[in-house]
């Protein structure tokens, strides 16, 4: 399932099934093992990768097992970059509601993207909203 391109980037294409989510995060963390990251960085990477891959499966591809999620990851110096792209219609990342305001605090959903934005050093969605790029500075 894992492929390495000439540019050193690793890619992984999974079906839209949440059973694959942990496999993706475990694969990335295993690949990062030689970096001896601290527990906090490992936690952040796992959580953010799992949140965005799950969003891609559930919200992006609407759990349609015929659609795939593409994950590409690589290192640029001390920067870990993970891109996750689904085959859905995208969403407006600017319209994600703030889960921390009083009226949203009791809501069950809406914290995933918010956490990702806090735990990663850079988070960028494409205009269509079906692809997100996460950057974590590995100190």
């Amino acid at each position: 399932m894992n492929r390495r391109s000439d540019t050193g980037k690793l890619s992984l294409k999974i079906p839209s099934d949440i059973r694959y989510v942990k496999e993706v995060s475990s694969g990335i963390l295993k690949w990062l093992k030689p970096r001896n990251l601290d527990d906090s960085a490992i936690f952040d990477i796992r959580l953010c990768v799992e949140e965005v891959v799950r969003n891609a499966i559930v919200h992006g591809n609407n759990n349609d097992k015929g659609l795939k999620v593409l994950i590409i990851y690589w290192l640029e110096g001390d920067h870990l970059i993970v891109e996750v792209e689904d085959e859905g219609g995208g969403f407006d990342s600017g319209k994600v509601s703030d889960p921390t305001i009083d009226e949203n605090r009791m809501k069950l959903g809406g914290r995933g993207v918010y956490l990702v934005r806090h735990l990663m050093d850079e988070v960028k969605f494409n205009d269509k909203g079906n692809k997100v790029r996460l950057v974590k500075y590995l100190k």
Partner: peptide
């Protein structure tokens, strides 16, 4: 050892 956004939602629920 680990909590994600679904876990937070479960505790809220």
């Amino acid at each position: 050892t680990y909590v994600d956004s679904s876990g937070l939602a479960t505790l809220v629920e």
